[in-house]
């Protein structure tokens, strides 16, 4: 009812159902929230991970040693035009181990997942330190596995 009717006849304005229980929630509320609907933790393929690069999708996910982290809060580092933007949506393990931001240390989504076998002891230690940094700073949201027929060796 309108404000003047409520004022004249003693009613109150009822807010839109914020719970969704009545089934009458304003579509505008639902739409505005659907954009920020949380992603379910789970299994990522290099193909599905590549979307979360801060550009195609607002969120930024990075894989390290087979574990995917949500690095959206580190947008200034990993987001578009950030210094480490080429890691976003990719497996960044080799790049972090080598302390290199070159594009050739990051594999494309249609290549096999890097097994990191030829890393030296020092590079492995450097990667472990980076991994610890990510564990402490960003939430783990899933694992990175090869997609059959796409990431076969």
């Amino acid at each position: 009812m309108s404000f003047l009717t409520n004022l004249l006849f003693g009613g109150v304005k009822t807010s839109q159902d914020p719970t969704g229980l009545s089934g009458t929630t304003d579509p505008n509320i639902l739409n505005s929230n659907s954009q920020s609907e949380p992603i379910v933790e789970g299994i990522f393929y290099p193909r599905t991970l590549s979307k979360y690069n801060g550009h195609d999708d607002e969120k930024i996910f990075i894989a390290i040693k087979g574990v995917v982290y949500d690095c959206t809060q580190g947008r200034q580092f990993y987001g578009p035009s950030g210094p480490y933007s080429n890691f976003a949506g990719h497996d960044a393990s080799r790049g972090l181990a080598l302390n290199s931001f070159d594009t050739d240390v990051v594999r494309d989504w249609d290549q096999a997942i890097d097994d990191l076998e030829n890393l030296s002891e020092a590079e492995k230690n450097a990667l472990d330190e980076w991994e610890q940094h990510f564990i402490n700073k960003y939430p783990k949201i899933g694992t990175l596995v090869p997609e059959a027929g796409v990431n076969d060796k």
């Binding site: 807010s15 914020p18 509320i29 505005s32 920020s36 949380p38 992603i39 379910v40 933790e41 789970g42 969120k59 949500d70 959206t72 809060q73 700073k137 960003y138 939430p139 949201i141 899933g142």
Partner: peptide
């Protein structure tokens, strides 16, 4: 503002909701 009273984590586990906090405390 009344419709945005929480900071919500970007991801959730399969059998859980996302983590909710007061809007004054961003996730992380």
């Amino acid at each position: 503002s009344l419709l945005e009273q929480a900071s919500i984590s970007a991801v959730r586990k399969d059998n859980e909701t996302a983590h909710y906090r007061n809007f004054l405390i961003p996730s992380n």
